[in-house]
Design a binder for these strands. Sequence first.
DNA 1: TTCTAATAGGATAATTTTGTCCGATTTAAA
DNA 2: TTTAAATCGGACAAAATTATCCTATTAGAA
Lengths: 144, 144
Amino acid sequence: MFSKACEYGLRAATYIALQSLDGRRVSLKEIADKIDSPIAFTAKILQLLSKNNIVESVKGAHGGFEITRTKMDKLKLSEIVNAIDGDSIYAGCGLGLKECNANKPCPVHSKFVDIRNDLREMLENTSLYEMTAGLEVGLTFLKR
Amino acid sequence: MFSKACEYGLRAATYIALQSLDGRRVSLKEIADKIDSPIAFTAKILQLLSKNNIVESVKGAHGGFEITRTKMDKLKLSEIVNAIDGDSIYAGCGLGLKECNANKPCPVHSKFVDIRNDLREMLENTSLYEMTAGLEVGLTFLKR
DNA sequence: TTCTAATAGGATAATTTTGTCCGATTTAAA
DNA sequence: TTTAAATCGGACAAAATTATCCTATTAGAA
């Protein structure tokens, strides 16, 4: 559904948000360790998220990644997914046809539209803060 | 959502079914041309579909691919997807966690479950014959 | 029987995605 | 001011996916 890069990005952002709630700025090393992702690859993804103003990065000693409470409240998962995977999830035909729309639908067009809309709605309505909510009370886990 | 291979496979199977309705056995060349896919790559996918008893292949002159009416009625899209992409769509966590289930859910687990179920249901309930229905009356298109 | 049109299948190549490495830069603290 | 800890960024490498090519095999028809 999502690329690996996107999965790492979502997990990383969630972990950063969770720690930021406690006022903790976290390092790349800690993030990769806690979300179980390849460290150098995760670094690239974090650079991307930083450039897209999704997380804040601080260079130098005691640097790391963080995100403000206001930001994680406003930020929707769709923005993270979009920064990494683009709009490939929403766009595109289920059968891979270039031109497939309501006027010229492929055989499963309408069925895919519904499912894609549910996915888009979910991503657009879920904030990064919501992602941390379950983690705080131990109901959800970022790593087994 | 699906791999390219799977998209080609779905389009190819649909085209074969459509032509089989008219009693026409179709060649690889014709299929690739009509569904707008790379011919040699499509050959590999058709081999796979043939091995999985999804379409019938006939070698030699006047050979090609076909599928019986009974078969296309029974055959669900899920079987085609499964033959090519495996169960990667249904299975797996949205965030890429190895162990993510109702007991140990990731923060978006329940939301993904719903969407994946819709997708699975759609694939398991749509027959290959249904795919051709729209094509016959010109409402849907396999190629722009 | 021979020719021709077709799929089967193995080897290989190109492209994309995923992942690593290393030096440059930044910043806090000793 | 030096050192150490951290991100940044470019180059590179590995793996997976997508795609091509060529030969073998099959089978219908002349």
